[in-house]
Design a protein around this nucleic acid. Structure first.
Lengths: 335, 335
DNA sequence: TTGGTCATTGACATCGTTTTCATAAGAAGC
DNA sequence: GCTTCTTATGAAAACGATGTCAATGACCAA
């Protein structure tokens, strides 16, 4: 749109009195260039204010130095933490990240995937929205684009690289902890059943309950949107039951924080009368009062592993899809 | 890196039995194309799995459909909210956003600016790190790149478009509110003095104190990193004074949340014995107990305004730099 | 028949790089 | 001083699109 055109390698070469090819070799750090000419050219670049045009370079070399990162929303600290991990790992390799947020809308996810393709990303890390089938993603693969799935599963998990946490185990750890504390009626609050993540955490919940010899009471399982509001509504609902629970395992920390608010409103003493365990271990969990017992899901690490995996694929790794499943860790605090 | 090459417009044209020029006209939505050929070509695209190469197109047309967005960190809800505003406004215009986080490191900021240039962004929205001079940013302008500064000022504010909130007024509103509540010793906690934002909020603080006929006591002004930890440390420091404050105005909500934690540790009853006002109005502020009185800084709106302004510049607006200063709003809650 | 639209075409230049590949300059070997 | 081998350099094609423009044929009205 702007008039002022860039300084090109051509101009630099001319100014330094060498050929364009030589200048090109220099920006790419070739060794077969004498020290003097190199100096001379670098000097010219500085003088002219040359800016490397990575776009043009990538076009010519059929190479891409960008990767797409698609998540549901950046407002969730779990994802922002994961983004930090992704950035950290990919910056190191010289990639630039294009972020996309779907807000869990299928149409947005499709649009984002298209945009990423148009921008020639070299690979994609995606936390697919619940219900995404592998066909939705396969068109990337058909174009030869490496894809790493993170945190959430698609309908056919085995088709792509995957990095996530063991949600079944996480749920189990959380609920076992509550059982050890002497609770018998434990609610499972938050999330919606379309999500594979919730189903897994729920399974862990059930395993722990059953192994302890208790019964699963369906009225204690509440689906809600993943938000504080959702948590607040959920806890109110179960507290009004004839036989209310004495503890809750929450879908994630955000929901748990909402649950805590709800309990405070109801003047229930958290930590004594009622215990809560969350999931994710977002920063805030350690800062609220009482501090929140939770299951660490290592967002930062997930981001890093996913990036490393993607990088390997982009470098031509062609082995079978890999699955990296991190072992969650219970963080016991006051709640 | 991958072998499978893209389908080109050329191939589409061939398959549909038209010329490349025609195909090009179609992807660009020209009107002087008959309905039938258009259909035919679109059909071929679908069959061949054509993907538009925006990179190549932009290179040729000397046009850019990306913009850079540079902030200090994505973990701060203020910025993630602002990012949502930016995305919202720029998606509508068909731009793609490249996000960069500086973590308030000058070296990172420089590197990011270079990266953005190399990727041919069409413009940049930046919340510069404290101490950024306009020279640091001027090289963008010299390349004809529109720049909009947001939320924080550079050393010469008048050189670029700017969107932000009136921090002086915000600080004043906050402190006036505390004074009305009967407080005489009011602390100002958090942030570091290199930040123009803090200086402005501090000025508002002082104006309110002085207008009420009180004295500013320097021991009540505490600089800290902008984090919960910082807030916690700050409140502990002032509580141990011989004459501790009875209220605090905090640099922002994050700090305020830390201050609240600190007060709870010290078993001070927030809302009765001690009042707090934060700044930004992040989501969490309304969710903590007691809920946090704060000054709304409209991150979402700032993002949108900044985007609109940038878009206008990218469309060739050449008027004088504009300054959009939003009027902050006191949100009274329980704290 | 003439003239005038209209849709489409073909050929070529261009964006700023990378990538061959051929060649020139320089050093080493005899 | 002439060949041989490096090493550095140059000319030109390529990447996948856009932009320009004159030329074509079809169609319609007069």
């Amino acid at each position: 749109m702007k008039k002022r055109s860039r300084v090109t390698l051509q101009q630099v070469a001319q100014h330094a009195g060498v050929s364009r090819a030589t200048a090109s070799l220099i920006v790419r750090g070739s060794e077969s260039i004498s020290k003097e000419t190199k100096e001379k050219v670098l000097q010219s670049m500085k003088e002219l204010g040359y800016v490397y045009d990575r776009i043009a370079a990538n076009l010519r070399s059929q190479h891409s130095s960008t990767v797409g990162f698609i998540i549901s929303e950046i407002g969730n600290p779990f994802f922002s933490e994961m983004l930090v991990g992704v950035h950290k790992a990919l910056d190191k390799e010289g990639y630039t990240v294009i972020l996309g947020t779907t807000f869990d809308l299928m149409s947005k996810q499709q649009a984002l995937l298209s945009t990423m393709l148009e921008y020639r990303v070299g690979g994609v890390i995606i936390s697919p929205i619940p219900g995404t089938s592998h066909e939705d993603i396969e068109r990337l693969e058909q174009l030869g684009l490496p894809v790493v799935i993170a945190t959430r599963e698609t309908t056919s998990p085995e088709k792509f690289d995957y990095v996530g946490v063991d949600n079944v185990l996480g749920g189990k750890l959380a609920v076992q902890h509550l059982i050890e504390k002497g609770h018998k009626r434990i609610a499972f609050l938050g999330g919606t059943d379309v999500s594979s993540v919730r189903r897994d955490r729920m399974r862990g919940y059930m395993e722990a309950i059953v192994e302890a010899g208790f019964e699963v009471d369906p009225v204690l399982l509440v689906e809600t949107p993943v938000s504080r509001k959702g948590g607040m509504d959920a806890i109110k609902q179960v507290l009004s039951l004839p036989e209310p629970p004495t503890a809750a395992f929450c879908y994630n920390d955000i929901v748990a924080l909402g649950v805590m608010s709800g309990l405070k409103d109801a003047e229930v003493n958290i930590g004594q009368e009622f215990n809560i365990v969350g999931f994710d271990n977002i920063q805030e969990a350690s800062m609220v009062t009482p501090s929140l017992t939770t299951v660490d899901a290592f967002p930062h690490e997930i981001g890093e592993y996913a990036s490393d995996l993607l990088h390997q694929r982009m470098m031509g790794l062609t082995e079978e899809p890999k699955r990296i499943i991190l072992t969650p860790k219970l963080i016991v605090r006051e709640s």
